[in-house]
Write a protein that binds this DNA or RNA. Structure first.
Lengths: 362, 362
DNA sequence: TTGTAAGCGTTATCAT
DNA sequence: ATGATAACGCTTACAA
């Protein structure tokens, strides 16, 4: 038997309870070698039933629990993918993560989640943590990292940006065609007869740029030149909502609002209600994401759908492909958005188009 | 210098990219010992500036990144707390996690998040993963583990149940007085003159039991005996919402609904709108949690507030206390809920109380 | 201040 | 089928 010096029960270990029974302890109790215990734990077929059961019994008696950390170090595989979520409070991201976890589970991968708190610095830290933990791949869901950051990350580990909006160099991407989604929203409003359409900008959100340019091109192809983009000064796009009051007080106020996402649209709905404006009577409103919020009857928000679950699953399959294929040209998956018309959009007052039947007038 | 056999670049390691530069590589390049590199990496004050900078340079040149897995194994400390979240799509949990992360960061702890998917089996697996990863403590946010499970977990690692509703043996708990919260809701409705108050039950949610009994005791002390508790058959409490239609078709229909949480209340609001019922004209409605959903003007849901951020921070400080004090009697922190009256509650039609001014009549 | 070497708890290779 | 033993990449006494 191997010489094994007495276990050092430093007060550290004693305090934090990491001094749990090890394979060595189990081996000793079952009177077998450590290697055999390992085989049993990984239920190898080549152990005798007799030894197997005595090992299992010893393990049970000791309350043995394998140490994943040690196993990972020895195995040189974590079987883990890291998911960085920009904002845990936004249900949209939660839905994407659900898709990621479903697909990961199907392929025997663990998913570790870190919260980015809508802050580039903290997201960079989270990525670093994932890298140091040696995750086999990472999904950055809505992360606000700049191009040079992502390129560096992409070099260090397989990495797919989700809901990234713009194309990032050096990493794979899975996302909705945000530009097209924004165009859909604007086209819808233009078709209803709106001409003064204001964009409530997503500010520092990753997809904000693409949606903004979709707004611009949508306006352009509708022959509308009067672009108004409301952008927040700080990091919280809701800060800019106050501007709505000013806009509405204008001589020639906008008749429609296109918000960066459903959360922002809901905030806008609040402001409009406070200002006594009818929606869609006085102002039409379109959101983005089609989260459950937009489906609430009392909001019944017209919005742009993103196939969140499909995106999540696609993230993992992309990651796995990259894992097996090695480095190559970035993979780009762009899913198509869909306009979901609900009750917050209608023709403008005195607009060119006749009013149309609508579900639940509010 | 230590004899070091050639690095084994198994194809595994080659594929997953775990064959990154190690301390040994850095040491070799900087012509120092591995131990010194370690000292530099943990910026120990006792290294000469000269060595320090040459080590740092070597590290930079090689693109060295410390291996957290190895460090943890050697150090016997993970500096990590595991957070199990029952449902990432429920904003309430996201808010609690924000509090947890804030306090954890203040104390130099990493936070790892695992998603429970509203499923007891998956939550048990997640806990097992945390245990195998040797987290120093865990927070179970809304986890639906039964008493024997939690007791076992509590034995294995410091563990605090959050938003647990009932008292679980063997683990510390941080939560709101759910029972009292439910009573507040019922008292409010009773004071408005409602007598037929129905409870939309939370089913398998952890706090459901406490809120149910709060509903019962609230009804009792208001002298109301006609308890109606709508409980779902499956795991999705929203399934039971259909019953609302039947209830309203009753001879003597309920005039008020108390929902398990804001999400469920929002669902109920949908059903009521579909059925053409006015809120609070025909039916009053109270939710629970005071998530941002209830604050949306178009819902403007009367609800019961939980101090989520404070709860989150308290979770971590409780964990740290347990970490330093070792085993002892379970710690119980119960925060007080508060009724937030908005626009979904009012006197019943023909009720005893005069109608009162309300913000935004809907 | 720096180096040596013994762990940490596994897996995996090679004997037997 | 089972056992020895060398990794895995780091930390940390202890020595120099």
């Amino acid at each position: 038997m191997v010489y094994r010096p007495g276990r050092v029960l430093s007060n550290r270990a004693a305090v934090i309870g990491m001094n749990r029974p090890t394979m060595e302890d189990v081996a000793e109790r079952a009177k077998v070698s450590r290697a055999l215990v390992s085989l049993v734990m990984n239920d190898s077929p080549q152990v005798s039933d007799e030894k197997r059961s005595s090992v299992l019994q010893a393990a049970r008696e000791l309350g043995y629990r394998p140490n994943l950390i040690a196993r990972i170090l020895a195995q040189q595989r974590t079987h883990t993918i890291g998911v960085l979520v920009d904002d845990l409070r936004n249900p949209f991201f939660g839905e994407v993560v659900d898709g990621i976890e479903a697909e990961a589970a199907d392929h025997g991968f663990r998913v570790l989640i870190l919260n980015g708190h809508r802050d580039a610095r903290r997201e960079a830290e989270a990525v670093e943590t994932f890298l140091q933990l040696r995750v086999e791949g990472m999904a950055l869901v809505g992360a606000r990292l700049d191009d040079s950051d992502t390129a560096r990350v992409g070099l260090a580990a397989p990495c797919v940006m989700v809901a990234s909006g713009a194309v990032h160099s050096g990493v794979d991407t899975v996302g909705t065609d945000d530009r097209r989604g924004a165009e859909l929203a604007v086209e819808h409003l233009a078709a209803l007869g709106h001409t003064r359409i204001v964009h409530l900008d997503g500010g520092a959100n990753v997809s904000a740029g693409e949606r903004r340019s979709g707004y611009e091109s949508g306006m352009q192809s509708a022959g509308l030149g009067d672009l108004v983009d409301i952008r927040p000064a700080g990091d919280d796009e809701a800060d800019a909502l106050g501007v709505i009051d000013d806009l509405l007080a204008d001589d020639d106020p906008p008749t429609a609002l296109f918000a960066f996402n459903d959360l922002l649209a809901a905030g806008a709905l609040n402001r409009l209600a406070d200002a006594g404006m009818a929606v869609p009577g006085d102002v039409s409103l379109v959101g983005f994401d089609n989260t459950f919020i937009s489906a609430l009857r009392h909001l019944s928000l017209t919005t742009v759908n993103q196939p969140t679950l499909a995106m999540g699953r696609l993230v993992v399959s992309t990651l796995l492909q990259r894992l097996s294929d090695g480095p190559s040209e970035p993979i780009r998956h762009t899913l198509q958005p869909e306009l979901v018309v609900r009750s917050t959009t209608g023709p403008p007052r005195g607009g060119a188009i006749l009013s149309q039947a609508r579900p639940t007038p509010r």
